[in-house]
Amino acid sequence: MSSRGKAGSGPGPIDSVQMPDVVVPQSLGEVLQLLRHTTDRAVWAGGTWWLHQPESARRDRQILAIHSVRELRRVVRTGHHVEIGATVPAGRLLGAGRRFLPALAVEAIHRVGPPPVRNVATLGGALAIPGTTLPVTAVLQLIDTSIELRRQGNSRWMSLGHFRDPTGVLRIDEGEIITRLRIPLRNWTHWMIHTYGQPFPGGGPSLTLLGAASMDKTGIDEFRFALLINGKRQIRLRAAETDLVGKAVPLTERDRRTILGSLEDNLLFGSELDDLGRWRASNGLRGFLQKLQ
């Protein structure tokens, strides 16, 4: 089953040519109906990730290209959060979004790629890369982003942190797609994102350090820290993060040693990182804690 559609506008009418290998629906209803009837389709938003995969990973599947679906290209801002359609190009978010998105999210979107790639790549596509977590995904997780998953007749919201199981498999049901992201508009007074290596699929070993904190008059109001290792494994220090909330700055040596100790005691820290990676991670955390003063 295929539908006619155009990839963009032109100065004159172009006859809608049926593209047998590619379906380009114009509405969300059409997408959900197509997914309900045939689940063996590759859903492409921008398609930038799929283009760099081996041909064997994408052959013989009809492409469901959702870049033209108008409902997925909206950005809606409220007082507390912003909802971004899954196929909004990353470059468009940096235009107006720079003024209200958390600075950490803006920086992470920058790292999706250079401007000519950001005008094609989408956040929805970045979140749904099988088996790999990009730094932008890890950042959005860190700042409590949630996503809407829809299939025909049903929709649900899910915390982005629960979207993958521990092995990296996406928790998405048949016939579902990501339709929106909801990013809380929290004011993070301190943040850090630092990547070693090439974090894109096939780029070799990489380590990304992420930190976010908000301070109030008395001290630390909120604190987050995460490591993304080779785009596959993540370390969060949730218990230690909670312990830091309410602490006055500068932190005592004991508090610093406690959180550093919880990092070094983490199983993945020892098993997934080499000496250099462990040194970088520890120093990154130490440096971020120092910034809070």
Binding site: A7, V22, T48, G113, P114, N119
Partner: peptide, 29 residues
């Protein structure tokens, strides 16, 4: 990967790296 800028064009007034653009998106562009 879009960094050398040699394959860029304007598509709908947006600079686009055609090495990162699936060919089907040319249709109607």
């Amino acid at each position: 990967d879009g960094s050398c800028l040699q394959c860029t064009v304007l598509m709908g007034n947006r600079v686009t790296a055609t090495c990162a653009l699936p060919a089907y998106r040319l249709h109607g562009a």
